[in-house]
């Protein structure tokens, strides 16, 4: 919250063009509208912090892979970063609403503030910094994923995912089996080689937090590491015609033993 207040003072201490900066800040915070704005701002910041910390994680499905975990962290982190900004915006707006003018004639003229150079500069710089944080965080995460995909490529399980209009099928070439369900062993890196036999689809194993389009005669690749046992929902995330909504199936992250058993009972061989 202090972060929010200090940003606030830096925004408005140039408005009162008089004594020392310290006095100006003090004077500014003696103003009733500033105090009220601060209170509203803190309230709204708190709303967004609660949303980020408690509500978002509840909405998101259980993370079953490294990528999903990273993604949930980003959702929470970005909400927390946005919270003071949202708090400031909504604080000013709420203060203005409580200060509204009623009646059928226009209100008296307010102060003729044409602009305020430092405020514009500080605002731009601060939003630039937040933007930079988001960009750097995102790029680092992309980089981590790309590195993981490269380093684990050798040991990874390869699954060929084929989208056909309105049904997914999965081919485990090394194991020599095919299935309509996506079965994955725990903690083993997996590479999905995704393609389509007709229109565009989008392969989305929900709890794994990754997604890639399926294109005709193209193989698009995604990589992840399932790290939790449980059920996976596989969906199509690109409108693909009549039964797009029904292009869903399930799968499971299982122990290596269970996975090998599943492979052999379906006529494949462990690889």
């Amino acid at each position: 919250m202090s972060e929010h207040n200090s940003e606030h003072s830096s925004e408005h201490n140039e408005l009162d063009l008089k004594p020392t900066p310290g006095q100006r800040a003090t004077n500014l915070f003696k103003r009733k509208d500033v105090q009220r704005t601060a209170v509203f701002g803190i309230f709204w910041t708190a709303v967004f912090v609660v949303l980020g910390l408690y509500i978002y994680p509840k909405w998101m499905p259980e993370a079953m892979s490294t990528d999903m975990k990273a993604m949930e962290k980003i959702m929470v982190g970005f909400t927390l970063i946005s919270a003071p900004i949202a708090g400031l915006v909504m604080g000013i707006a709420t203060q203005a609403i409580t200060n509204r003018h009623k009646g059928n004639t226009p209100p008296p003229d307010g102060p003729a503030i044409r602009t305020n150079g430092p405020v514009v500069v500080v605002w731009s710089v601060v939003s630039g910094i937040f933007c930079l944080i988001a960009v750097v965080w995102g790029i680092m995460e992309v980089n981590t994923m790309a590195n993981a995909a490269t380093s684990e490529a050798g040991t990874a399980l390869h699954v060929q995912v084929t989208g056909s209009q309105w049904v997914w099928s999965f081919k485990y070439a090394d194991q020599g089996i095919e299935s309509d369900k996506l079965m994955l062993p725990l903690d083993r890196p997996v590479v999905f080689d995704v393609t389509s036999v007709d229109v565009n689809h989008s392969f989305w194993p929900v709890q794994l937090g990754v997604k890639v389009d399926a294109n005709r005669l193209q193989t698009t690749v995604i990589h992840t590491v399932p790290n939790k046992l449980g059920r996976i929902d596989v969906k199509c995330a690109e409108l693909c015609g009549l039964y797009h909504a029904y292009m869903e199936t399930t799968g499971e992250v299982m122990t290596t033993t269970d996975f090998n058993n599943w492979v052999t009972t379906n006529g494949g061989h462990v690889a």
């Binding site: 084929t162 056909s164 049904v167 309509d180 036999v197």
Partner: peptide, 10 residues
């Protein structure tokens, strides 16, 4: 077939 998988009985 577009996708040979559907030649299989499931």
């Amino acid at each position: 077939l577009n996708n040979p998988y559907f030649g299989k009985v499931v």
